[in-house]
Design a protein around this nucleic acid. Structure first.
Lengths: 351, 351
DNA sequence: ACCGGGGATGTTTACGCAAACATTGCGGCG
DNA sequence: CGCCGCAATGTTTGCGTAAACATCCCCGGT
């Protein structure tokens, strides 16, 4: 299989002399036509007689011609590619959002290039933005859930359309996000409506915008209802951290309802309560956030706040492509609504 | 959605007239130097006097210059980008493998472009390969777990280094995969060693190579041990499908051990057994496959076969980059070993 | 004072493609 | 019978960059 390329020879190194790839000129020579005719055939343009077209096609086949996308992009000034900057695919939210972005971009004929930020430090982010300048992308979607955006935005290349997901970048940017605050409100209201006196909360890692917003929704809902606000339990999105939080919560005598900032931590809670002999939902009610597919199979199936990842992805792509196409896009935040999915992990509080 | 593709101004359409981007020539003019000097500054080449360098840098800043990667790629003949073809990010395996690929590619200075195959039909695959020809990638990693590769490989662009993951593409290709058969063997052996007479199996969707290989490992291990081979239960990787399979399995009187082809289906099994009043592992033992992070927080924590996704990703990148760099790579399959992670879902069979 | 050398910078060129423009050839019509 | 018009194809050009080569100038040595 094809060892065409030579030693790395990237920018910075002298480009190694390589077996030149077959170009339009080669095909043209072989087919006995001009390069322009090859171009026309290659792009399906009209005005080429069938016999000629076939000769060209045959020549392409024989030579294994592949159009050079660099040259094409240089000509068109576009790559039909969107860059996505993110920290990790390990969280369900990130990977589902990415999938939605990929799918909708594909519908529009755009591919996605991932620009990972290895370490979520300031330098890491700056590095990603720098690399961005060298990358073959027409626009960028930034998915950063930690407090590093400000440091980084300074460096956002001018002239590249940008859409930001799941952050609270200021209004100069185009932002798309799930309505975290309202989602949390729904979760808390549901528990309150069931008769629970108050609701405990297991939050996400420090510095996470998303975690902060969900906690805000939780706190303000309690305050507005005039309920006491219990101390916050800290997690890091992982089931394991939810388990640890649950072990502690199980010892709180008046804890009858817990809202976990994501489904994975809710899973940990369920296990902790189970081990401590507390029956969900008889003794404690649990609500999650995300509605990952697995949550319907937890024991018991989890009541949770459904995030419409597909819609978030769709809107990101739509808004970023509007910019690429020079259509007006006003900065500001687009919120995608959530909905509460009722399953079996919530009930009235024990009498 | 769907602003039509014709708005895009891509190949085939007249390129949208856009404000021409700032080029080296513009910077050169502004700084009062030649384009070549700008190039030298831009690439950090030596031989530019400090005062000149600063002028150029200033001009770049003012004008918001960004190097044009298309032109660069055209010059160098490389994009420093690897294309990854996959069906979906919804399964944990895919997204974790992708993450590993992204990370290791980044270490080597390569970005990843995703080429989604919307529908896993023959046409879908062919379409992806066709688009591939237009994409700015130096190599391709194909992650396809269904039986469509043969139809598609015919069309694999010549001259592009390719590595295939998780499939049984024939030996003409470079293949990297987890050792599925051996992983399944470990799971089954473990259960047999505990004293179970035989092991039932919940397999993945029809047509999945991975599912097939795990089922093969299960079956041959049983056969070699001279144990009866129970009928196969069919799932589709989802927890829900595992749940349905579990409901049926719970009614089999002599079913004391189940090996699920992935952790998510195992989750469904746990729930089904729980609902049917069967205690895991006292009444039934369950083993999963993948070792997703959540599985440690299942009720009970799941014994499962750990897949080293990071290693799979690393090897894919390594082997594909060897090809890019024209180093020898012999076709054939590289198997990444698994290991069994013992947790609390397995025990001796009921007496 | 003159020349050689080398560092700093400028000029030319090619990368592969496709738009714009140029040429060829053929059929139909006055 | 000659010319027009159009369809098919060819030629030129430029996209932005950076290697290769050319030039300039200053400085030190003789």
């Amino acid at each position: 299989m094809s060892l065409t390329r030579s030693d790395a020879g990237g920018p910075g190194d002298p480009p190694a002399r390589r077996a030149r790839r077959v170009s339009m000129a080669d095909v043209a020579r072989r087919a006995g036509v001009s390069a322009q005719t090859v171009s026309r055939v290659s792009n399906g343009h009209p005005g080429v007689v069938d016999s000629t077209r076939e000769q060209v096609l045959a020549a392409m086949q024989e030579l294994g011609y592949r159009p050079n996308s660099a040259a094409r992009a240089l000509k068109y000034g576009q790559f039909r590619t969107i860059g996505v900057i993110l920290f990790t695919l390990a969280t369900v939210g990130n990977s589902r959002t990415l999938e939605a972005i990929v799918d909708h971009a594909a519908e529009e004929g755009y591919a996605i290039t991932l620009i990972p930020v290895a370490v979520p430090t300031r330098d890491g982010v700056l590095g990603a933005f720098t690399r961005l300048g060298e990358l073959a992308v027409d626009a960028v979607i930034v998915s950063m859930e930690v407090h590093l955006l400000d440091a980084a935005t300074v460096n956002l290349p001018v002239g590249v359309p940008v859409v930001v997901v799941a952050s609270d970048a200021d209004d100069r940017y185009v932002v798309v996000d799930t309505d975290q605050v309202d989602g949390a409100r729904r979760a808390v209201r549901h528990l309150l409506d069931l008769g629970h006196r108050t609701v405990w909360h297991v939050t996400g890692p420090e510095g996470s915008f998303v975690a902060e917003r969900r906690a805000t929704g939780w706190r303000t809902t309690l305050e507005q209802a005039g309920r006491p606000v219990p101390p916050l339990a800290h997690g890091d999105w992982s089931a394991e951290s939810g388990y640890r939080a649950g072990l502690a919560l199980a010892d709180e005598p008046d804890c009858t309802a817990v809202f976990a900032a994501n489904d994975q931590m809710a899973l940990g809670l369920l296990r902790a309560f189970h081990e401590k002999g507390k029956v969900v939902p008889r003794d404690v009610s649990v609500v999650g956030f995300d509605d990952i597919p697995d949550s319907a199979s937890f024991i018991p199936p989890l009541t949770t706040v459904h995030q419409d990842f597909a819609e978030v992805g769709r809107r990101c792509v739509e808004r970023v492509l509007r910019q690429v196409r020079n259509k007006p896009v006003e900065p500001g935040t687009t919120l995608v609504p959530t909905r509460l999915v009722l399953r079996e992990s919530t009930a009235r509080p024990p009498a």
